[in-house]
Design a protein around this nucleic acid. Structure first.
Lengths: 346, 346
DNA sequence: CTGAAAGCGCTTACAG
DNA sequence: CTGAAAGCGCTTACAG
C-alpha cells in the first residue's frame, strides 16, 4: 500500500496541493469551510507531510545533535547518563528532538567524518558536545563552517563568535573548597586533580592553588596528585599518595569531583583511615550517591539540570535568530555539607 | 555563503550530476580517473549530499526513534538512564543513529500525536519504546500501520506480527527467588510487588505465587504488598507492611526490583531491623549500586546490555529485511549473591 | 562509461 | 481566496 501524499489529499478534498499545504501549515488565508473539508480528509487518511519534502523548501529540522564523547568511563557513569535526560527534556520543552551519538574517541578519523557528515547532511540545526577536552579541532572547524555548536565545559578566552555557545563550571570552586577546609581548621591539605585536558579540571586546579597561596598553606608535592575524573582513577591516585606519606598525612583531601572522592573513600578504607576522624574529604559535582554513601560526602554541588537547560535554550535561541544570546555562561557551585569533614581544633 | 550542491560539484569537476552521484555512492561504473577528479572537488569543498534530497529518492534514514515513556521516577533513575547508552551503542554498531524523545505520559493526546508524527513524517526507520505499560493502543496502531516497533518488556501471547519486536525478562525469576530463599531455610516470606501494568511485574508476581505454592508456603495478606518500581515506593510499602506486622515478621522480603529493595533497606533501618540478621532481602535487576550499599544486595541480575543489544539488532534486521528475525526474546536472570540474605537453621 | 530528463514530496511566489 | 508552475537536492532508469 502506497503512502498517501499531498497530491492524493488534494484530489480527495477537491482542492489543489497549494491549498493542502496552506491548511497543513495553518496559514490564515483559507476559509473555515475549505479548511474543515481538507482537514477531514487529512485526518481520515492520517496524512502527515514528509519531512524530507518540507526540508527541501527551507523548513528547519527542529533537531539537535548530541555528541557524547568519551564513552569509556564517562558516558557509562550513572551521573553522566542522567545529563542526557536533562538535555532531551530541555529540548522537548522547546519542541526540539535530539539525535544522539556516542563516540568513544573524537580524534579518530572515522568518527570525525561521521560527526562532520551529520552536521553537513542537514539532519540537525545545531550540535551539542559533551565530554570533549578543551581543545578540539573539529569543534573549531564546525564553528568556522557557521554551524551552531553548543559546548559543555569548553571555553576559550577571546574567541567570541555568535555560533559557539557554552556552559561552564565556575572558575573558583577550588578556592571555595580550600576556604571551607581552612575555616574548619585544616592546614595540611592534599589535592587530587582531575584530567587537565578538561577546562573544569584546569580551573579547579588553578583555584585550589590560589586558595592555598592565599592562606599561606604549604604546597607539598607528596600531597598533590592526579586522579582523573572517575572513581577507579581516584582510588588509584589516593592509594598511591596516602601510602607514600603515612608518616605525615594530610588532614584533608580535595577530590577533583565526587567520582574521585568515592575512590578516596575506598583507598582510605583499605588503608584503615577513618573519614572524617583521620582524614576529611571534599568532592565536587553533587552526585546523588554522595548522599547514600557513609559518611555522606561534603561536596560543592552544581545544578546540572540548570546547566544543560541553559545550554540547550541558548543554542535554540541562536538557531531561531534571537538577539543578544549570551554566548558563554558560568554556573556557581553550592556547598553541600555531609559528614565527610571534621573541624580541627588548633 | 550559499551551500554547495551536487550541481556545483558537477560543474567544478566538469562532469554531470549523475556522475557526481555515482561517485558519492561508490558505484563501480566510474573509471578511477573520473572518480579521483570528482572526489578532489568534493573534498576541497567539503561537499556532503543533503539527506532530504536522498530520502526523497528512496534512501532510508538509518535512524531509530527512541521513545522513553514515564519520565517521572523512571527515566531519571540512574540505572534506567544507563539503558539509553546501551541502545545508542548498539545502534551505532550497526551504523544507525538514535532520535530520542522523552514522554512523561503516553496517553496524553498531545504526546500521542507527537509520536505519530515522528513515525509518519519519515524521520525514522523504526521506533523503540521503553517504559510503557503492557497495553498501549498507540503501539497497536503503529504496528497496524506497518511501522516497525521495538518493545522493551512488552509482549502479548498470540500476537505475532513480523514488525513487532520485543525483548523481555524471563517469566520465572520470581519462582527462582522463592526457591533460593526456601533453600536457605526461609518459610515466612513477604513479597513487595511492582507496578502490575508492566509485563515483568506481572510475571514476577505470578511466579512468586507459583514458588510459594510449590513449596506450600503460607500466603498471608499482611506479607503481600505493592511497591511500584522505584525506591520511594518500595520504602513506603515496606514501612507500612513491616510496621503492621512487627509481632509476626517475615524472615525474608522479595522486592520486585533493586530500587524497591533499596527502599526496603531504608524502611528496615528506620524500624531498627538489621539486614540480614533480622530480615533477608532479595532484589531483581542487578543494579550496580547494589554492590556499593551495605550489606551488598543479593539480587537476580539481568544483562541489560544484552537485552538492548538484542532488541536493537532485531529491529534493524527487520528494517533491512533479513529473514527469520526472532520476534520476541526472553532473557534469563542470574543469581548474584550479596550479603543481604542469611541462612536460617531449622 | 556518461549525460539529459524525470521524479521523489513538499512549499512558495506569482497571477488571477 | 486559490491554482499552475517552478524549484529545493538528490537519484535512477533510459538512451546512447
Amino acid at each position: 500500500m502506497k503512502r498517501i501524499n499531498s497530491n492524493d489529499i488534494a484530489k480527495l478534498a477537491g482542492v489543489s496541493r497549494s491549498t493542502v499545504s496552506r491548511v497543513v501549515n495553518g496559514y490564515p488565508n483559507v476559509p473555515e469551510e475549505t479548511r474543515k473539508k481538507v482537514m477531514k480528509v487529512i485526518k481520515e487518511h492520517r496524512y502527515y507531510p514528509l519531512l524530507s519534502g518540507q526540508l527541501l523548501t527551507g523548513k528547519s529540522t527542529k533537531t539537535l545533535g548530541l555528541f557524547w564523547v568519551g564513552t569509556a568511563g564517562i558516558a557509562h557513569d550513572s551521573l553522566t547518563s542522567s545529563y542526557f535526560m536533562h538535555i532531551v527534556d530541555a529540548a522537548a520543552r522547546r519542541d526540539y528532538l535530539v539525535l544522539a551519538c556516542v563516540l568513544d574517541n573524537i580524534s579518530e578519523k572515522h568518527n570525525i567524518n561521521y560527526v562532520r557528515k551529520i552536521f553537513m547532511e542537514g539532519r540537525i540545526d545545531a550540535g551539542i558536545f559533551v565530554g570533549t577536552s578543551n581543545t578540539e579541532p573539529l569543534v573549531d572547524e564546525l564553528v568556522g563552517f557557521d554551524k551552531i555548536v553548543g559546548l559543555f565545559d569548553y571555553y576559550h578566552e577571546n574567541e567570541d563568535v555568535p555560533n559557539r555557545i557554552s556552559v561552564n563550571f565556575d572558575r573558583h570552586s577550588g578556592e571555595k573548597t580550600i576556604d571551607y577546609l581552612y575555616g574548619l581548621g585544616h592546614r595540611k591539605i592534599a589535592i587530587i586533580d582531575g584530567d587537565l585536558s578538561r577546562l573544569s579540571c584546569i580551573h579547579r586546579h588553578e583555584s585550589y592553588m590560589r586558595g592555598m597561596i592565599k592562606h599561606s598553606l604549604p604546597l607539598q608535592n607528596k600531597w598533590l596528585t592526579y586522579g582523573g575524573i572517575v572513581k577507579q582513577r581516584g582510588y588509584e591516585a589516593a592509594k598511591k599518595m596516602l601510602s607514600a606519606c603515612m608518616d605525615d598525612l594530610p588532614t584533608a583531601i580535595c577530590a577533583n569531583n565526587d567520582g574521585v572522592a568515592f575512590g578516596v573513600y575506598q583507598a582510605c578504607a583499605e588503608l584503615g583511615l577513618r573519614i572524617p576522624e583521620d582524614i576529611s574529604v571534599v568532592g565536587a559535582d553533587g552526585h546523588e550517591s554522595g548522599r547514600h554513601i557513609s559518611p555522606t560526602l561534603t561536596t560543592f554541588s552544581f545544578d546540572f539540570k540548570e546547566m544543560f537547560t541553559s545550554l540547550v535554550d541558548r543554542v535554540i535561541d541562536t538557531i531561531e535568530h534571537k538577539e543578544n544570546v549570551p554566548q558563554s555562561v558560568f554556573i556557581e557551585s553550592q556547598l553541600v555539607e555531609g559528614g565527610s569533614c571534621r573541624r580541627i581544633d588548633s
